[in-house]
Amino acid sequence: MNKLILTTAALALATGAALAESHGSVVRMGTEGAYAPWNYLDDNGDVAGFERDLGDELCKRAELTCQWVTNDWDSIIPNLVSGNYDTIIAGMSITDERDAVIDFTQPYTPPDPSCYLALSADVDVTSSMIAGQTSTIQAAFVAESGAMLVEFATPEETIGAVRAGEADAVLADCSYLEPIAAEGELVMLERKEMIGGGVGMGLRESDGELKAMFDAAIQSMKDDGSLNALIEKWEVASTF
């Protein structure tokens, strides 16, 4: 099995050079830049975080020159399909809805559970007001669960709403909430929800070659353990 993967990887790398020619050798990586620790802007305004490290390593392994671009979360998929950048690497969970429109590489993190962050630990999440970021899988989940959903445009505002007592709790990726819970004041609830699959890189459906290259690169990082090391370094999810 391993051998098979290695050959596909080698094959992908070989086609990589040819593809790199046609792509003008630059692959544009689209991210949001506002979702620490996954991706955020550092003090100099450059993209940083788990996905920056991961993306740079993947590009190195696939022998591609990569360029980082930030784009608003709301229009991140329309801008991919209309060709303004070539990949989405922005903590995007693989869902059926998204998969129908774009292609995903194999997941580079296992599914990350979603957590509740609340003012007090005795909040009953089935019957209270839950804040979520508009158009995330968590917002859709709360809407279906029957709890009261309050939607905000940014993750920052969802936290603010809980602090101000506007909502009883916020539902978001555990990795996003953990550093906030660590500051005290707000508490993480015991309950966790498994929503969505793992996180993968999004590509245009017509970009099969590029997808194969990144798939191979992710596989090689999984195989030599460097992916797990990165996940642990940034505390974004459980390891493979």
């Binding site: 429109v101 508009t134 309050v150």
Partner: peptide
């Protein structure tokens, strides 16, 4: 202002559909 229970104005729903269908 936040939208409660997915009750919003025309732009809110237009955004919802643009987001779900990925076609603005």
């Amino acid at each position: 202002f936040p939208a409660w229970q997915q009750r919003g104005d025309a732009l809110y729903y237009a955004k919802y559909f643009a987001d779900k269908t990925f076609n603005p």
